[in-house]
C-alpha cells in the first residue's frame, strides 16, 4: 500500500493516456466525412479553426491529439485550481464551486453545490493508489489483442477552438468506434490543458450531460478552501479506493478496450470497476433482500444503472451495472455476470 503510493502520481495518468491512445495512428487526418452516427452537438458547430484536411504535412506539436491528451492528464492530476462550474444533465442545470489541490502528492478535491439542496463533498487521496492496477506490465497483454484488430475504442478528432470561461480552449472529440460507449467532447484550456468543458453525447448526437466552467482561478488553493463549509459534508477517503481485492465474479462479455481497473469488497458483495481510459462503469454483485430483485434500468443524466439477477447454487445475487455508458451496453454487461468456474 505505502509502496504503491510512492509512485509518482503522473504515472497513473500517463497510463490512462496510453489507454486512450491505443491506436496512435488514429488521428484527425483520417477523419471520414462528417456523416458519422454522432452528429456535432451545438457547442461544436462553431467555426472551426483547425479543420482536419487530407494530405497535410505532419503538424506542429500543438496540433496533435497526443500532445493535448498528455497535457490533459498532467493538468487533471497536478494542477491546483478553483472555479465555478455549471453541470447540466437532461434539462437540469446545477451550479457548483470546485476546488482542486495537491497535498503531499495526493489530490484533494472539494465540490460545493450552489443550487438546490446544499451538498458538499471532500475527497482525499485520489490519484496515487491506482498505479498498481493500471500497471505497465498488464498493459501489453491487454492491448496487443486490440492493436491486432487495428482499432482503438475512440476516434480522436481535433475540432478547433472555442472560448470557455474567458479562456481559449482546444476542442477534442472522442468519437466511439462502436456502440458500446458514449461520445465525449472535451474543451482543453490552451495554456494548462485542463478540461474546461466536457460533454457526453449519446447515439444520434444527443447531449446527455455537460460540465462547463464559467470561471477559472489558477492560483494555489489555501488550506482554508479545503475545509468543509457545512457539518454534513460528505468525506471520501480514496486512499484505498483502487485496491484490487479478490473476487469470484467475472464478466462473460466485455467490450473492446475496457479493462478491469479495481475490485473492492463491500459489506454485502463485490464491486468491480472497468474503464477504457475515458469512460468508467462499475459492476456491483450483492446479496440483497428479495425486495431488490428488480430487473430494469434507472437513468440519471448520463448515468445509467441496470439491475438484474444472477442465481448461483440456489442463491440469488443482485447485479447492478452503473456507468456513463449506453443502456444497451449496461444491460448486456449485467446479463453476462457469472461466477468463475471452479470457485
Amino acid at each position: 500500500m505505502t509502496g504503491s503510493r510512492s509512485f509518482p502520481q503522473d504515472k497513473a495518468n500517463s497510463m490512462l493516456l496510453a489507454l486512450l491512445l491505443m491506436a496512435p495512428g488514429v488521428l484527425a487526418q483520417q477523419e471520414p466525412a462528417p456523416t458519422g452516427p454522432v452528429t456535432d452537438p451545438p457547442a461544436a458547430a462553431e467555426p472551426q479553426l483547425a479543420v482536419p484536411g487530407a494530405g497535410q504535412e505532419p503538424r506542429a506539436q500543438t496540433d496533435s491529439v497526443e500532445y493535448w491528451l498528455g497535457k490533459l492528464s498532467a493538468a487533471v492530476g497536478n494542477l491546483e485550481y478553483s472555479g465555478l462550474v455549471t453541470f447540466e444533465h437532461q434539462g437540469m442545470l446545477e451550479t457548483l464551486q470546485v476546488f482542486h489541490a495537491v497535498r503531499d502528492g495526493e489530490q484533494v478535491e472539494r465540490v460545493r453545490y450552489l443550487s438546490g439542496e446544499p451538498r458538499e463533498l471532500i475527497s482525499h487521496g485520489t490519484g496515487s493508489a491506482c498505479n498498481r492496477v493500471v500497471s505497465p506490465l498488464g498493459r501489453t497483454n491487454q492491448w496487443s489483442s486490440i492493436d491486432g484488430q487495428g482499432s482503438g475504442s475512440y476516434h480522436f478528432i481535433l475540432r478547433g477552438g472555442e472560448r470557455i470561461a474567458d479562456r481559449d480552449t482546444v476542442v477534442i472529440e472522442a468519437r466511439p468506434r462502436d456502440q458500446h460507449r458514449l461520445g465525449v467532447f472535451l474543451n482543453l484550456d490552451r495554456e494548462t490543458g485542463l478540461p474546461l468543458k466536457s460533454i457526453l453525447v449519446g447515439a444520434q448526437g444527443k447531449v446527455l450531460e455537460r460540465y462547463q466552467f464559467v470561471q477559472l482561478d489558477l492560483s494555489p488553493i489555501s488550506d482554508a478552501d479545503l475545509q468543509p463549509g457545512s457539518a454534513d459534508a460528505r468525506r471520501i477517503d480514496n486512499r484505498h479506493a483502487c485496491e484490487s481485492a479478490q473476487t469470484r465474479w467475472q464478466l462473460g462479455w466485455l467490450p473492446d478496450g475496457y479493462q478491469r481497473v479495481a475490485v473492492r469488497t463491500l459489506a454485502d458483495g463485490d464491486m468491480l470497476v472497468f474503464s477504457d481510459g475515458l469512460s468508467v462503469f462499475t459492476v456491483f454483485v450483492q446479496r440483497l433482500g428479495p425486495e431488490l430483485e428488480y430487473k430494469g434500468r434507472a437513468i440519471r443524466g448520463a448515468t445509467v444503472a441496470y439491475m438484474d439477477r444472477v442465481q448461483v447454487e440456489g442463491t440469488n445475487y443482485t447485479v447492478t451495472v452503473v456507468g456513463e455508458i449506453p443502456d444497451a451496453t449496461a444491460q448486456r454487461l449485467a446479463g453476462s455476470v457469472a461466477m468463475e468456474p471452479g470457485s
Binding site: A12, N13, L16, L17, L20, L69, L72, S73, V76, V85, F87, E94, L96, V98, H100, Q107, E109, V111, Y113, R119, E120, L121, S123, T126, G127, A129, C130, V134, L194, P195, S198, Y211, R234, I236, N238, A241, C242, V261, A262, R264, M271, V273, S275, G277, L278, S279, V280, F281, T282, F284, R300, G301, T303, A305, T320, V322, G323, E324
Partner: peptide, 26 residues
C-alpha cells in the same frame, strides 16, 4: 451504487472533477 460508482470513477478516468459532480446527486 451511483454514488459509489462516481466516487470510484473520480480517479480512474481523465475527466477531472466531473465524476465528483455526479457523485453528489441524490
Amino acid at each position: 451504487v451511483m454514488i459509489q460508482h462516481s466516487q470510484q470513477a473520480g480517479h480512474v478516468s481523465t475527466q477531472g472533477m466531473v465524476p465528483f459532480a455526479r457523485a453528489t446527486y441524490g
